[in-house]
Design a protein around this nucleic acid. Structure first.
Length: 415
RNA sequence: CGGGAGAUGGCAGAGCGGUUGAAUGCACUGGUCUUGAAAACCAGCGAGGGUCAUACCUCCGGGAGUUCGAAUCUCCCUCUCCCGGCCA
């Protein structure tokens, strides 16, 4: 959630920055008006309550002194009606306000470029040269046309489209990738956690998936529980409603989970192959940091993910997302795109974001800064999506005879 | 899924329907003492909103109710623990 106080006090600046995200200015205006309204109504309510409290305290005194309490009681009764009415006013306003506020995306950093979509993203750098083949490299599904590695048909049989089954060396490779990544991340100072793949509404709300993006989630019937779309949800929410001490920050964690996404808005996109599945494995990086150190932590996470690809020998590039392409909760995001020779293009394989205090405000994650409690900054990034990494290995390490080499660093994990 | 107990501040643990936002202990922070530390003693120590700062308001799992007044009484929900069944 954005900082409503900042919106009230610096309306122009905030709404100017939010323009990058193509937000309706009228909505912001409304938000500001409503929040000021609420402040006023709430002040009135509090006055009434203060009055009521003060008079209530007279009650036992009057009784002790044997005074008549009928007059006092009638005053209290009247005042009570006013309070009840005013409470309703405040409650409605609060409801309306939070409905609007929860739908407003995060404020982009100044460093985020203007732009409306992918086309306007800015390439920061390329790492490793793209491989040169003396034959025409295939896409992963053609490489494995008889489904020795990835069995799409049976995945569909078991569940439905966009589910698949890994077999033989692919299954082992997946496991090797997970282990390699977790070990790598640990060596970079990220502590490993293993968390539930199901989260409740409060958690999804804390990281911003709810209420706005319910359509993207698999919900468990009759339970108010959801399959997680990313480990970011459970791992960040580990600290929901907590006040951390300054010296335990930054907290840097890594976790492997399955991720479940409905891909509601992507009908018809990437229907072939394993690029876009309803379920995929991902090793995630999550960090909580003091505001002044979060940029440093962001860079650490980004280089951690990039170095991982380098270690795997996979060419990739770093792309700074423009305002229009930025996710709902992110103030700044850099995507990492891996080279897929079969597709002859870069495809997203990782995404590192700094949400600043946007999630922390929703999830109430704070730390003690001397006497005061301040919101932390939360950051998240895919270490790498496992499925896409698997594809990248297949396509980049393919040989003329259709076999696939194993990256050097994975060999010890494949024995 | 069936039977019993419970939910209070970082933890432990009191709390008659009326200055109780909440005793006490531990932990923590500052100070005195000490060469230093420990011990001892003194002081402070929940959160959110609000204010320049005070006042002031709200919060004792969540919601509804009784009452002039509820942490304290009633109802519902959720969760936790113990017993039984089922089962990785």
């Amino acid at each position: 959630m954005i900082d409503l106080k900042a919106l009230q006090n610096n309306f122009e600046a905030v709404s100017q920055k939010l323009k990058k995200k193509k937000i309706d200015a009228a909505l912001l205006e409304l938000l500001k008006e409503e929040s000021l309204q609420l402040k006023e109504k709430r002040n009135l309510l509090e006055q009434l309550q203060a009055d009521q409290n003060a008079k209530s305290k007279l009650f036992p005194i009057y009784k002790k002194e044997g005074k008549d309490i009928a007059e006092l009681k009638s005053q209290l009764d009247q005042n009570k009606e006013k309070i009840t009415a005013q409470q309703e006013v405040v409650r409605l306003l609060e409801e309306k306000l939070s409905e609007i506020a929860l739908g407003v995306p995060n404020i982009p950093d100044d460093s985020v470029p203007e732009g409306s979509d992918e086309e306007d993203n800015i390439e920061l750098k390329k790492v490793l040269d793209t491989p040169v083949f003396d034959f025409a490299p295939k896409e992963h599904w053609d490489l494995d046309s008889n489904q020795e590695w990835i069995d799409f048909e049976r995945g569909v049989k078991l569940t439905k489209s966009r589910f698949s089954v890994l077999k033989n060396d692919a299954a082992r490779l997946e496991r090797a990738l997970v282990n390699f990544m977790l070990d790598f991340n640990r060596s970079r100072g990220f502590d490993e956690v293993s968390v539930p793949f199901i989260a409740n509404q409060d958690s999804l709300k804390g990281t911003g998936q709810l209420p706005k993006f319910e359509d993207d989630l698999f919900k468990i019937e009759g339970e108010n529980l959801y399959l997680i779309p990313t480990a970011e949800v459970p791992v960040t929410n580990l600290f929901r409603d907590e006040i951390l001490t300054a010296d335990e920050l930054p907290i840097k964690l890594t976790s492997y989970t399955a991720c479940f996404r409905k891909e509601a808005g992507s009908a018809g996109r990437d229907t072939r192959g394993m690029i876009r599945q309803h379920q995929f494995g991902k090793v995630e990086l999550v960090a909580l940091a003091k505001p002044e150190e979060s940029d440093q932590v962001f860079d650490d996470m980004l280089s951690c993910a990039s170095d991982l690809l380098t270690a795997l020998g996979l060419p990739h590039r770093l792309v700074m997302l423009c305002g229009g392409d930025l996710g709902f909760g992110a103030a700044k995001t850099v995507d990492i795109e891996v080279w897929l020779p079969g597709q002859n293009r870069y495809r997203e394989i990782s995404s590192v974001s700094n949400t600043r205090d946007f999630q922390a405000r929703r999830a109430m994650i704070r730390y003690k800064d001397g006497k005061k409690n301040r919101l932390v900054h939360t950051l998240n990034g895919s270490s790498l999506a496992i499925g896409r990494t698997l594809i990248a290995v297949m396509e980049n390490y393919q040989k003329r005879d259709g076999t696939i080499a194993i990256p050097e660093v994975l060999k010890k994990y494949m024995q």
